[in-house]
Computed example of a mutant assay.
Amino acid sequence: MLKVQELREIIKLVDNSDISEFTYEADGTTISMKKLQENKLVVQPESNTPVTETPSVPEVKEEPVRKQEEVPTAKPEAETTEAKQTDYDYEIVSPMVGTLYAASSPEADPYVSTGSKVEADTVVCIVEAMKLFNEIEAEVNGEIVEVLAEDGELVEYGQPLFRVKKQ
């Protein structure tokens, strides 16, 4: 099954492309996406349904109406993130592509967590790139208000890792 982040990336790619319909099938689960005339994307998850079966035309017209109601549910999340953005002054971002490690070893406690006080030279995590372990420092004095990346997660260049309220 796809992770939420992977599904969001697929939705963005389909939405920004000229593709009007997209179907993905794996492990007996099928996900179909269709763009509406208004360029809104509709996601229709189906389980154990072969891709070759398509609903009749009246059902297709009814289906997007129900799915459009689900699309606005993502907006409260956006409002929530906007509210969180006011709680921080600085984002610690990844300087490279690699694997993030929150602690020096699997048994050790994480370098920082939400509520941790940091100084400019405080190590907040490690990013491994090509077998090199790079310590990432806070670069500011403050308090960690949000941890955005998980231990063992692949991070991209410039991806926010932590949000800091400066002091």
Rank of each mutant, 00 (worst) to 15 (best):
M1R: 15
Q5P: 15
L7E: 08
L7I: 13
R8G: 15
I10W: 07
D15N: 09
T23L: 03
Y24V: 00
E25H: 12
A26V: 14
T30M: 01
T30P: 09
S32F: 11
S32W: 12
S32L: 11
M33I: 06
N39A: 00
N39Q: 06
K40T: 11
K40V: 10
K40M: 13
L41E: 02
V42D: 06
V43H: 11
V43D: 08
P45T: 03
P45Y: 08
P50V: 03
V51N: 13
T52E: 12
E53S: 10
E53W: 12
T54K: 14
T54C: 04
T54D: 11
T54N: 13
V57K: 10
V57F: 10
E59C: 10
E59G: 06
V60T: 12
V60F: 06
E63Y: 13
E63Q: 13
P64E: 02
R66E: 09
K67G: 09
K67R: 14
E69S: 14
E70M: 14
E70L: 15
P72M: 13
A74E: 15
E77S: 14
E79L: 09
T81G: 03
T81N: 15
K84V: 15
Q85P: 01
D87C: 10
Y88Q: 03
D89R: 01
Y90I: 07
Y90P: 04
M96V: 00
V97F: 06
V97A: 01
G98F: 02
G98H: 03
G98E: 00
S104K: 12
P106Y: 04
P106W: 01
E107K: 08
A108T: 06
S116T: 03
K117V: 08
E119V: 15
E119G: 06
A120V: 12
V124R: 02
C125Q: 10
I126D: 07
I126S: 03
V127R: 00
A129K: 00
K131V: 04
L132C: 00
F133E: 11
E137R: 14
E137L: 09
E139H: 07
V140W: 08
N141W: 07
N141R: 12
I144F: 05
I144S: 06
V145S: 04
L148A: 07
L148Y: 00
A149Y: 10
E153S: 08
P160Q: 04
L161D: 01
L161K: 04
V164E: 05
K165R: 11
